[in-house]
Design a protein around this nucleic acid. Structure first.
Length: 279
DNA sequence: AGTCAGGCTATTA
DNA sequence: TAATAGCCTGAC
């Protein structure tokens, strides 16, 4: 067990921000707890209990420092971004920030992010999560963790890497991928045959990464932006999905002030997106 | 029944 | 270059 206390970190806001598909809220037995989530990432499973700004984690200090602190983007100063919003932001964004100041851009596994957001196109959260979970169940490694005497052991599946997946699973329709299945099959095959492609992606800047990603079938502007933002941590990326498109038309008819948020537009987008979905 | 859901590809004009 | 049909599928 390890305990952290950081500002601008709210598990519920992150879980409902659309950037992650393998977070699950757990019905907590503990009364003294606001939220309890379980996430599978990096071939691991992490339990998190939040009460106020205190978060308890079922990992060691070492594991927090080596894996999860980076995942939670602990080095980015979200408080100062909040100051920029309070200082120069429009009223709508200020309201959004009030509701979602615990938002963070997770630094998720690149491969998982690519595949997940390819599945997300023209799709809804429930179906996306189901498809991702089924893909992991059928293609990932099975692991068990023991949470202690009072709980049953938790079983979870890792996200299948390019070289460990049997591509024939894309042939039937059991993953619910629909017309996306061929795209997924192709990118799995491509990544397997070009192992340096992923590694090289990490070295590219935002524009270069967008270009490289969109060369793949099934990745357009929106999906590429999501991958840049959530998998490569290019926080200048500003994905425009149907919700963001609608909110831009609703609140920013005269145009959105990208200039002020140059370099951090993706973080701003998350505040707006989350707020829009809370309405 | 039609529409929509965190879009993309391929085809038109 | 810009606009649009068609696409898997399940929920509402």
């Amino acid at each position: 067990m390890y305990r952290i206390n950081v500002e601008n970190l709210n598990l519920k806001q992150i879980a409902n921000s659309g950037q992650c598909f393998r977070w699950k809220e757990v019905k907590s037995q503990q009364e003294d707890c606001d939220y309890h989530f379980r996430v599978v990432a990096f071939d691991r499973c992490l339990e998190m209990w939040q009460k106020g700004t205190e978060i308890e984690l079922n990992c060691s200090k070492k594991e927090w420092l080596e894996i999860w602190s980076d995942y939670f983007d602990i080095t980015t100063d979200y408080k100062s971004i909040g100051e920029i919003i309070k200082d120069k932001g429009d009223n709508h964004l200020k309201e959004a920030y009030k509701e979602g100041s615990g938002m963070r851009i997770l630094k998720q596994d690149l491969w998982e992010t690519i595949v997940s957001f390819m599945i997300s196109q023209n799709n809804n959260i429930k179906r996306i999560s189901n498809s991702v979970e089924e893909l992991c169940r059928r293609g990932g490694k099975c692991c068990k963790i023991d949470l202690g005497d009072e709980c049953d052991a938790v079983e979870y599946y890792s996200f299948p890497k390019p070289q460990e997946l049997d591509l024939s699973i894309f042939e039937d329709s059991s993953l619910g991928l629909g017309y996306r299945a061929p795209y997924l099959r192709e990118i799995y095959e491509f990544a397997r045959n070009n192992p340096m492609w992923l590694e090289n992606l990490r070295t590219l800047n935002y524009e270069e990464a967008m270009k490289a990603l969109m060369e793949r079938k099934g990745i357009g502007v929106k999906v590429a932006n999501c991958i840049c933002l959530f998998g490569l941590h290019h926080v200048e990326a500003f994905p425009i999905d149907t919700h963001v498109k609608q909110l831009l038309e609703k609140y920013y008819k005269e145009g959105f002030d990208f200039e002020t948020y140059n370099g951090i537009a993706g973080i701003i987008q998350q505040y707006l997106f989350y707020y829009e979905l809370q309405e």
